[in-house]
Amino acid sequence: MKNLKFKKVYLFIAAMCTFMLHLPFAFSTGKKVAYKPIVPAPLSTKNNAFAFADKMYDSLKLNLCGLSIQAFEYAYKGYDFLKLKGKIANDNILSIVDFSKPSNQKRLFVIDVKNYKVLFNTYVAHGQGSGEAMATNFSNRPESLQSSLGFYTTADTYMGRNGFSLHLQGIEYGINDKAYQRSIVMHGAPYVSENYIFSKGYLGRSWGCPAVPEKLNKPIIETIKNGSCLFIYSENNRYLQQSAIINS
């Protein structure tokens, strides 16, 4: 008798469990509800500085000016890095020299990053030791007469043998940190002109300085002086792998 009662209780409990298991399906709408686990957001393939740089590049139509997107992305990333580190006093201006282009093209870009304006787009020379029409060789060594790649901050102005000039501070160790010692400055030069290009096919060359047209020398220097960021770029794998700022 006891076994019979136990059997009935067992059957009742089993029936209730079966009913409870099927209850959600009885009241369901027939639609599948996807299970969404909580997972971390995927990391972007580009950091925030690159993403913002791409938007600015498109907004300013810098491709129509001839500035490569790679040069601008790296320039803006470094500018953003240096700004966060408190290394630049004038964060309104970002200047880029794009040595991936020959000297008969306008490869200096001075950009107002606060107001989204290209202030200057003109010619700029490279060093005698860096190449003829294209700058392909770069050095931090004194008396090499070569240009140095990387990030600089602009310093004070002075009157020198090339007229109104701008001191530059190279801030990448082993890459351009000897710029001040080498007297690498921005100045005007008569060989940076369309007339020179017409006669030779390319600009004249400096002793490593980013020389600019004489007519634009003073307004460019007055715009970028006293602590703005200057980036000199080339598709140079050694620099791109070595730069601590590029790889930050």
Rank of each mutant, 00 (worst) to 15 (best):
I224K: 06
A211C: 03
N217W: 04
K200P: 06
G227C: 10
S243M: 04
I221M: 05
S228L: 06
V192Q: 10
G201M: 09
K215A: 15
S228I: 03
E235Y: 02
R205I: 02
L230G: 02
P213M: 11
R238D: 14
S206Y: 02
I197R: 04
I221Y: 02
P210V: 05
E214G: 14
Y239H: 06
P219Q: 01
K225N: 07
L203D: 02
E194V: 13
G227Q: 05
G201C: 14
S206N: 04
K215S: 11
I197E: 11
R238L: 13
V212T: 12
S234K: 00
E214P: 03
S199M: 11
Q242T: 08
Y239G: 00
N237M: 14
N226K: 12
I197T: 09
N226W: 06
N217T: 06
G204N: 11
K218C: 07
N236G: 05
R205D: 01
I220G: 03
I224A: 13
I232L: 08
E194D: 10
N226H: 08
G208V: 04
K200E: 08
I232P: 00
L230A: 04
Q241E: 04
P213R: 01
E194Q: 14
L230S: 11
K215G: 08
I220E: 01
G208R: 04
E235V: 07
C229F: 12
L240P: 11
N237E: 08
A211T: 01
K225L: 00
P213Q: 05
T223M: 12
Y233I: 01
L203H: 12
L230R: 04
V212F: 00
N237H: 05
I232V: 13
Y239E: 00
G227V: 15
C209M: 14
C229H: 15
I221W: 00
S206M: 11
K215H: 10
P213I: 06
R238W: 11
W207H: 12
